[in-house]
Design a protein around this nucleic acid. Structure first.
Lengths: 227, 227
DNA sequence: GCGAAAGCTGACCACATGGTCAAGAATCAA
DNA sequence: TTGATTCTTGACCATGTGGTCAGCTTTCGC
């Protein structure tokens, strides 16, 4: 019996880890730029500084490599999705939502574009994720938004369209980076730009949905631990 | 000398026009789905119901076909860009802007995705359009928005980010159609859905930017012809 | 220092790619 | 009917594709 029985992603020698990192990074760039079909293992290998055979050795196949990148991106996404409850302050939640989504676009532009490219192509690999896991998540959030509306904390807007509004307007700065840069005449967006945009989006969404502050509750334990 | 000297796009026999239409329609679908590199002439030809050689006969090359599709899409875009002036009602202009942008997503989803795919890939064919023509258009609009803000007709938001907000949130329903359908559980968005979304986006933008009505001017000729 | 496991890679394969071309078929103005 | 123009298309080409494999080197636990 071999020493290592599982082919778990977690383990692996230092060499393996280093090469896989290089391949994944290169592949994310290339897939994001050219889509699944348009990307070539040759180009990925060159950008990773390895021969093509080596890429196949570590990743098995183009398909497996692509799926692995998608899964990694979904993990980053999920890491953002902390729970909320109707007791929370809508303004704070929406603000945090927009901010964290914006940071993903900022920190993982290639991953964001990879995801966009997958959806653009009809989501052949992500269909069940979209209509399963993600759908459930959206529905549960939507319920909270509706509860807020019922309590008079915000206008009775359809939560689904609101979520899409936040997704699209934040995702835009990764996916359409080339357009944003071309039009603004810059060669990159600064951190200050991003902060300005985040504030703008937050302001428009919160004001546009008529979000009001909840009546403060003195006995709220969260408020006590907060300060 | 040949009877027809110019190779203008406008003319052409009935056969040519019919075949070109079929090819362009098929190519728009395939390019939108797989990107420039990922699309194959073979697939385009099959979807158009013609042999591959015939596609080359009419279009010359893959590159020319792609560029022609992009230009057609830019024409549709430009058709929307009617002039505005600081004298106009901000609410009406923004509302019309969102509505017409939404209709393009609705009427030309493949074209919208083709455009998105081009930008996603770094806009190799559209860079000068973005930083030239389109940039000028955005700047002139931005000037009007700023004038409105100066006159106290709306909050002093940065017009550029506002334009991007409108673009992204409307474009979303074409580009991320697969995601929208997966999450909403539908197999298509109805006209009523689109109308609801348009109203929602208009409401949020106008309210979110604090747009107010201008003081009515009795001697406004436009108002007179209107009713 | 040994032996097994892991890592490496050029040669190679079947197939798909964009594009060319020549020769025939259909169309159309006169 | 004729002659020119347009249209059609299968055969073909050089190149690139994802993937396999055998044989090599390196690494590493003991």
């Amino acid at each position: 019996m071999a020493k290592v029985d599982n082919i778990s992603e977690q383990e692996g020698g230092a060499i393996r880890r280093r090469n896989e990192r290089a391949i994944l990074a290169a592949a994310e760039r290339v897939f994001a730029r050219h889509g699944y079909r348009g990307a070539s293992l040759q180009e990925i290998a060159e950008q990773a500084g390895l021969p093509k055979s080596n890429v196949l050795y570590y990743m098995g196949s183009k398909r497996k490599l692509y799926v692995r990148l998608l899964e990694r991106m979904m993990e980053r996404w999920n890491a953002m999705l902390d729970d909320i409850s109707p007791e929370d302050d809508p303004a704070e939640v929406l603000s945090a939502f927009i901010r964290s989504k914006m940071q993903i676009s900022r920190r993982h532009p290639e991953g964001s574009r990879l995801f966009a490219s997958e959806i653009l192509g009809g989501a052949p690999f992500l269909q069940e994720y979209l209509s399963g896991e993600l759908r459930d998540w959206v529905q549960s959030r939507a319920a909270v938004f509706r509860e807020w509306a019922d309590r008079g904390l915000m206008d009775p807007v359809d939560p689904i369209w609101l979520i899409f509004l936040i997704w699209s307007s934040t995702q835009h700065y990764a996916d359409f980076e080339a357009q944003v840069l071309g039009i603004t005449g810059r060669d990159a967006l600064s951190d200050e730009d991003l902060e300005k945009i985040t504030e703008f989006l937050t302001r428009v969404v919160i004001k546009g949905c008529g979000v009001r502050h909840p009546a403060p509750r003195a006995e709220d334990p969260a408020t006590l631990t907060e300060r």
